[in-house]
């Protein structure tokens, strides 16, 4: 029982300290925001590939 109370108390304390610095748990803002760069490069690459697929489809149409 004592253990559970200490556990709850420590959890409560930790949430308190978390609330103090506003930083929220956010993947995109961790590690110097590198994930944002990754996301942008991935979007660029996907965009280019969609463009390539469209060219492919157009050539396919012309071939028919």
């Amino acid at each position: 029982m004592k253990f559970i109370i200490t556990l709850l108390f420590s959890l409560f304390c930790s949430t308190l300290t978390m609330a103090q610095d506003v930083e929220m748990a956010d993947v995109m803002r961790s590690n110097g925001k590198i994930y944002v760069v990754v996301a942008i490069i991935a979007i660029l690459f996907i965009g280019l590939m969609i463009y390539l697929i469209r060219i492919d489809k157009k050539v396919q149409k012309l071939e028919e």
Binding site: I34, V38, I41, I46
Partner: peptide, 10 residues
């Protein structure tokens, strides 16, 4: 290539 971009950076 998409995998290599994401995994390559992370």
């Amino acid at each position: 290539v998409l995998y290599s971009i994401i995994a390559g950076l992370l």
